[in-house]
Amino acid sequence: MTIVNIDQLHLYYGTFHALKNINMNINEKSITAFIGPSGCGKSTLLRTLNRMNDMIKGVRIEGSVNIKGENIYAQDVNVELLRKEIGMVFQQPNPFPKSIYENVAYGSKIHGITNRKQLDEIVETSLKNAALWDEVKDDLKKSAYGLSGGQQQRLCIARALAVNPEILLMDEPTSALDPISTLKIEELIQDLKQRYTIVIVTHNMQQAARVSDETAFFLNGEVIEMDDTATLFSNPNDQKTEDYISGRFG
């Protein structure tokens, strides 16, 4: 089942043509990886999916991004509601300078949930889903800044899950983490696939090969090739893909 359909998408930063004619389908409850060298447009495309690019001055978009059949760049789209449906995890763990509890409860409070019991439940479930509950259950009132980098990133995942999104966007979520924390997050991503559609940008080709079902290879703002991950890594169609995955550039 396709959940995201990107149709003839062009994106410009001022005069710079950052994304060129992107056409792509992303499947529901699967993991899609975006790979490619720095500046190829993979993070830019990720941020068009929850319209975080709106905040950058001078961005212009042509074409459409349809999520569950609706163009999210249509006039009457409620961006706040869209971002509730599409969670995001950033490259650097960015917890708020608040307690662990308040971090996870933040999104729910924003969207109007005030019942303490309900919030408690959401916090517990989200932390369990982010595989962090056992490590922090006695310290919910403590500052999130006391956690390690890997724990902070899982807290950010819990925070994103707490508003019950359908799609989870991850922008190089492990690039600031050590190998053990990275492994934990990769395992977590595998678990989350049962319930969420995940799109992950990664610099690390091994990571894409390990975690994803489908992989798209980007170069200079174009999608060169998108295929089943196993096929793309073992038997790529395009010479440029092969050069990249065999480490000849990038």
């Binding site: 950033f90 960015n94 917890p95 300078p97 508003v163």
Partner: peptide, 11 residues
């Protein structure tokens, strides 16, 4: 990054 975190949650 903290503002982004907040906006990305729909605030």
């Amino acid at each position: 990054s903290q503002r982004h975190a907040s906006y990305a949650l729909g605030a």
